[in-house]
Simulated assay, not measured.
Amino acid sequence: MITEVEIRRGRENGQYVLLVDDRQFHLLRRAVSVFSYQEESAVARALVTGAEDVTLAEPLQLDVSYDDVVPGPVELTFAQLHAVYGILTSLPTVNWVEEEFVERVGDFRETILRMALLLRSGLLRSGLPV
């Protein structure tokens, strides 16, 4: 069960480090990957992520095979954190029946939304500025 996400200041000013467990890391990775493949419209991607050019490939190791991924803390800019949050909150609204959603994303809509809530509460608890 997903219980908490701690967020700390990153190496550089304006960076956030998400301290996530392996399951949370893979959930974020799958959600972003599914969104990237299913959403072909650049306008819709920008609407959800808040920017046209935000990239999440490096921090979530999207270009790495599953067997070679090293789960752990995820360092993001605020724009990238916003993009992940936007993806987590919008992905459950895709018009797939529940079985198809679970097959594609690997988890239930409620779990994806819970992860979004954990990011939000983690950021609020961190007290870090935007």
Rank of each mutant, 00 (worst) to 15 (best):
A31M: 10
Y16H: 11
L88M: 02
D22Y: 08
V70W: 10
I7M: 11
A51F: 00
I7N: 03
V105C: 06
F108P: 02
G127D: 10
V34R: 10
L28R: 00
S65D: 14
R125D: 14
E100T: 11
M1A: 09
A51H: 08
V74C: 01
Q38E: 15
A79Y: 03
Y66S: 13
V34F: 08
N13H: 10
L117E: 12
A57I: 08
A57C: 00
W96L: 07
L88C: 09
A51N: 12
I112L: 03
L27C: 06
E99K: 11
T3M: 13
V43D: 14
T3S: 11
I112E: 00
R125E: 12
L18M: 05
W96Y: 15
E75W: 04
M1S: 12
V105Y: 04
E75S: 15
R29S: 02
S126W: 00
G86N: 12
D107G: 07
Y16N: 09
A51I: 02
A116R: 01
S41F: 08
S126K: 04
T111L: 07
N95R: 14
I112M: 05
Y16W: 11
V48I: 12
R23A: 12
R125V: 01
E40C: 03
G122C: 04
D107R: 11
D53E: 04
G122L: 07
E40R: 15
G127Y: 12
V64K: 12
L124K: 15
L56D: 08
I87G: 08
A46N: 02
E39Q: 14
P129Q: 13
E12V: 10
F108E: 14
M1L: 13
A57W: 02
L118K: 02
G14H: 02
R104S: 05
V43W: 12
M115I: 03
R29F: 05
V43L: 13
P92N: 03
V54N: 07
T49D: 04
I112D: 00
M115K: 00
H82K: 11
E12S: 14
A31E: 05
G50A: 08
L117D: 15
E58V: 13
E12D: 12
N13G: 09
F35T: 02
Q38V: 15
D63N: 11
L76A: 06
L118H: 08
V105R: 08
G86W: 00
E40P: 05
V48E: 10
E4Q: 14
A42G: 13
V97S: 07
P129G: 09
V94H: 04
G86E: 03
V97M: 15
L19V: 15
T77P: 09
V64R: 13
L47C: 05
P129F: 06
S36L: 09
